[in-house]
Design a protein around this nucleic acid. Sequence first.
DNA 1: GCTTGACCTTCCCATCACTGGAAGGTCGAC
DNA 2: GTCGACCTTCCAGTGATGGGAAGGTCAAGC
Lengths: 149, 149
Amino acid sequence: MNIGKAAKASGVSAKMIRYYEQTGLIPKAGRKDSGYRDYSSADVHMLRFIRKARDLGFSVSEIDGLLNLWRDRSRQSSDVKRIAQKHVDDLNERIEAMKQMAGTLQSLVDCCAGDARPDCPILADLEDDHDGSGAPARATLRPGSKGRS
Amino acid sequence: MNIGKAAKASGVSAKMIRYYEQTGLIPKAGRKDSGYRDYSSADVHMLRFIRKARDLGFSVSEIDGLLNLWRDRSRQSSDVKRIAQKHVDDLNERIEAMKQMAGTLQSLVDCCAGDARPDCPILADLEDDHDGSGAPARATLRPGSKGRS
DNA sequence: GCTTGACCTTCCCATCACTGGAAGGTCGAC
DNA sequence: GTCGACCTTCCAGTGATGGGAAGGTCAAGC
């Protein structure tokens, strides 16, 4: 089948299929005489695998690892589990950081009158020098923020 | 002061300061005879504002809005509040999506023996056709939301 | 005065996972 | 044979940064 049909059947766009081929995530597709790529239902199966993994937030390089394990009949489930657990841990870490941000910001929003006057605790906080250092504080959201939903 | 000092004082890298200038987020810095950019403490103050907003996860375009309001003495706090609340809502939406992912994946991980055998419910689920449609399920986690940490 | 090293300048490239578009070839139906 | 839908490759852009090259400037020490 042509790439468009494979795209529809798998839920991965034609653009993406070509991109995945180019980057080596998937093997090069066979070609018809016309030069059109030709896909089997096994290919679609693989693409669907990829889409589902993306839907779970795996990065392309993680998916590369998962695909190799998927194809490897002598794989050890511990290898799969390790990749997945690592990803869950990453997700949870990011969730925590975002919760903190959201919490801090929500408390500022709650303190803001939101009327026609210019006074605003949100801007005041942004302007304020809690931390004059300019330390490389990226990510380590300020200690003492009220966050923590 | 030179850009390096302003960078240290504000916590925004010199690279980023130039980038923000280039994209118009901040006005063009004055120059010394040498051609070096020259910053005042007011500039550092502004850069610190930007860094704090980034730390709260605001995008550059949101910060552009906030900076304009910050400079606008006749601003209405409701405008600031709207931007911030919108951002909190975005954050919460992304948090929910990630929680869902993490939860789904964690339950799969929990079902995986993680031993030397090849059988693995994680791969099985990825392989499985819950949803043969190929529907555009690519939800709510917008690109670039990965981890600003 | 000269060298050295730290700093500055601009410019280009890479990231990550895509999306968009242009220019042109192929196919199937009418 | 013509039309529209599809396919091909290639090139560029996204957002917020980091990295590095090639070259100019400055201040200190000799």
